[in-house]
Design a protein around this nucleic acid. Structure first.
Lengths: 255, 255
DNA sequence: CCATCGCGTTGACTAAGATCAAAGGGGCAC
DNA sequence: GTGCCCCTTTGATCTTAGTCAACGCGATGG
């Protein structure tokens, strides 16, 4: 049993390549949020169909000319930056309904790599045309700005994590974040499959893979989660959340 | 001698409160970038004058309703996030020409605090009106998107720093970044004053203030910089840059 | 002009996570 | 179906930065 436990909605299988926003059950999580039928139809006509990627394939690479942003229709991605001096940092994991590629707007070239961590499908959204349309549809324009701003806020959260949290706190925050996002997509909040390796988790969290593995084991010993390879089940959500208590112990961990 | 060493251009004194973009010598670094005279005049009319802040004053606080973004006209700011569990992370330092407040777009409320680190002045840019204008002026719209995207890319750089670098590498990267930004504003790239405390630097870099202080001392011992309180002079730029060599030693530090 | 307080520096010790190493297990390709 | 390789786990040791503490300087305000 490796597929995620489905709760209620959202059949993630994309039947054909051309699925319109108006028909898409992710629309409330994605770019079309808040559009009326007419405007949604205009957005539909702009979206350049889908693109399927096999696991391991790059959606784009750092340096590629920027033309489009992408909405994840199904599957799972990571983005990472690597510098000329050999450093490698995973900057995010993206799932259905989330937008990829906005890093490329500023320089007209992508500044990170986006890789599918499982077979995936994205919608292609040509950016120049999106700008034209968004100058005509105010709610689209505003929502685009919100999506970009949300990315900035998300990044601040990661900076907080990397700057102030200890290893186990980071992993707890990571699991809680995944849980919440799976839940928002109609999957179980308590049981899911990690699509990424310990090393990728470590890179994202600023830890080594051994540290991630040890933290997983520790959580399991303590009865917070059960974990077997990539399969995770959250057993004690309240205590997992309590791990994020302040480092100064002002609010001591409730034993 | 505490004022920054001025090199050539940019008199940073703002004579009156109402300085138009078209007259501003920061316009090439700021929002009006790339606008022609007509469009610049329209942007002028939108900008709600300036606001002066004394050192230590908040420009906005987390939770404040979002109405405007701000362009730093003069002075120096920090932004920081603090969570209910008592963590505190400086997410950035902003200087003349840089844009503040875009974090607030996504939730209609600011998600971080912005504090003046010296007496400062900002231009107020009402966001709703900016959206209206940018839907009419394509180059303004596009530049706004670039500014937001640049913030995302900058955040990725900080994530890289926090995720992969050691203490001295972080400080070197920080000094080089400041140097480059001062230089872009017509100040010396080699000599400047830090507006922030060791603790604020530490928070930004994910280090304790003692570690920051020790790293400064070490750099000075090694002849890379001279540092006295908040006054820094870069003595050996190449070797400072070489500190950012890869952690795996593939390119060994040139002795 | 002096007292004070905040900021910065430095030292000794501690703890967290990295590093090095080895072995087991699962999934994928053939 | 089987074998191989990558991923993961776990242990022992080492390094780095954090913690705790004390002191000195300098700016600020009375």
């Amino acid at each position: 049993m490796h597929a995620n436990v489905k709760q209620n909605v959202v059949p993630l299988i994309t039947p054909g390549l051309k699925v319109a926003c108006s028909q898409c059950n992710l629309r409330e999580l994605c770019l079309p949020f808040g559009l009326d039928d007419t405007d949604m139809a205009r957005l539909d006509s702009l979206i350049g169909g889908g693109r399927k990627l096999k696991r391991g394939q790059h959606l784009y690479r750092a340096g590629d000319p920027f033309e489009s942003i992408f909405a994840v229709r199904s599957g799972f991605f990571k983005t990472d930056v690597l510098t000329e001096d050999g450093r490698d940092q995973v900057t995010g994991f993206q799932m259905a309904g989330e937008i990829l590629g906005m890093d490329g707007i500023s320089t007209e070239h992508h500044t990170c790599n986006a890789v599918a961590l499982e077979d995936s499908e994205v919608c292609l959204i040509p950016f120049t045309e999106l700008e034209v349309l968004s100058s005509e549809i105010h709610s689209l324009q505003h929502h685009l700005h919100k999506v970009m701003s949300r990315e900035i806020v998300r990044d601040h959260g990661v900076m907080m994590l990397l700057g102030t949290m200890r290893a186990e706190e980071r992993l707890a925050a990571f699991l809680l974040n995944l849980s919440q996002r799976f839940s928002a997509r109609g999957y179980s909040h308590a049981e899911f499959h990690l699509r990424m390796t310990r090393e990728e988790i470590g890179s994202y969290l600023g830890l080594k893979l051994e540290t991630v593995s040890r933290a997983f084991s520790r959580f399991q010993e303590e009865g917070l989660i059960s974990v077997q390879q990539k399969h995770v089940r959250i057993l004690d959500l309240p205590r997992l959340k309590a791990l994020l208590a302040p480092p100064d112990g002002r609010i001591a961990r409730p034993a």
